[in-house]
Design a protein around this nucleic acid. Structure first.
Lengths: 171, 171
DNA sequence: TAGATTGTTAATCGATTAACAATC
DNA sequence: TAGATTGTTAATCGATTAACAATC
């Protein structure tokens, strides 16, 4: 992974000692422990907001659930999409979100909507009590202090790649 | 964007001076200049390897081309996918890649294949002369020194979000 | 000229790496 | 006990922030 042994030990020790001097680490229990730290043993319910091709692709992705991240609903505003089925989920209208939240625990909202709706929808869902956003919209969301945002900015990543390609620089 | 004015000036000055003291920056020409640095005015031809839902979603994404990143072909190995149309592109068999490369300039390969094929396919395409990989496979690719890799590790990002959520920490 | 803002140097901060003592 | 490897302290490195002189 391009990481030094020093860094590995340094990082592990932030969370406590997991190894046995002289013998090394027990891979099985270390793996388990890291999973605990990351909270992989608890199930997180996620909703997808924006049922475009990216939103649909994420809904179909199977790897997330294996790590405890479960998609429980998909929302959009386009009437032609409402009712359509993606995997086992019918696309719901965003207007039904407040009602949905009353009856379901939602831990994370995945934002895969067009750029121009980004701020508006982010404000809407945080007002409804969403505390974590996985943001695929290429903008910096301004959210209340207690809301956690994790960004996936695809175009930024691609531009970094383009820059490195132009300047022939690795990573 | 949560960046200090110091950092902005520091970063700009790495590439030269673009501002006028006392007056500030001319946004239009600065924007143009940053585009030049990132190479946004040159067109990059990209191919998608792996026509699953994620690969298809990226093919349909319109924002990349606006920044000069153009998808010119999609490859897979699943026979039932070959010939199927995604936007204007027919899905081609990966075996036809060498022939395709003889007749087309490819700057970037987008890897959206299952994890277990990651290393094998990366080795295959770098051997064929691909110099840049936008890697969506959740592994660290080992590639020759002159190959540029930019990773999008979705599950890592999601786990970071999960961690921050558990420990109630912002960004 | 006076003043606002850039460009640049210096200080600070945090993360990575190195060194080494603790210990199983 | 001897030696290998962890855990931790110290050194290094790079990036961010602060300070300020240059200048339009």
């Amino acid at each position: 992974m391009g990481i030094t042994s020093s860094q590995v030990r340094q990082d592990f020790s932030s969370f406590g000692g997991y190894g046995l001097q002289r013998y090394g680490y027990d891979v099985e229990s270390l793996h388990q422990e890291i999973g605990n730290i990351l909270g992989l043993n608890t199930i997180r319910n996620m909703i997808i907001i924006g049922a475009g091709s990216l939103g649909q692709a994420l809904a179909k992705h199977k790897e997330f659930e294996k790590k405890g991240f479960k998609v429980i609903a998909i929302f959009d505003v386009k009437t032609e999409l409402i009712g359509q089925k993606i995997t086992e989920h019918e696309i719901r209208h965003l207007d039904s979100l407040p009602h949905f939240l009353e009856n379901n625990q939602v831990d994370i909202a995945i934002l895969t909507i067009p750029e121009n709706f980004g701020r508006e929808v982010a404000a809407y869902i945080t007002e409804l009590g969403i505390k974590a956003i996985w943001n695929f919209v290429p903008i910096e969301l301004k959210t209340p202090d207690d809301v956690i945002v994790e960004n996936i900015h695809l175009i930024d990543s691609l531009m970094v790649l383009g820059y490195n390609l132009k300047h022939k620089r690795r990573e």
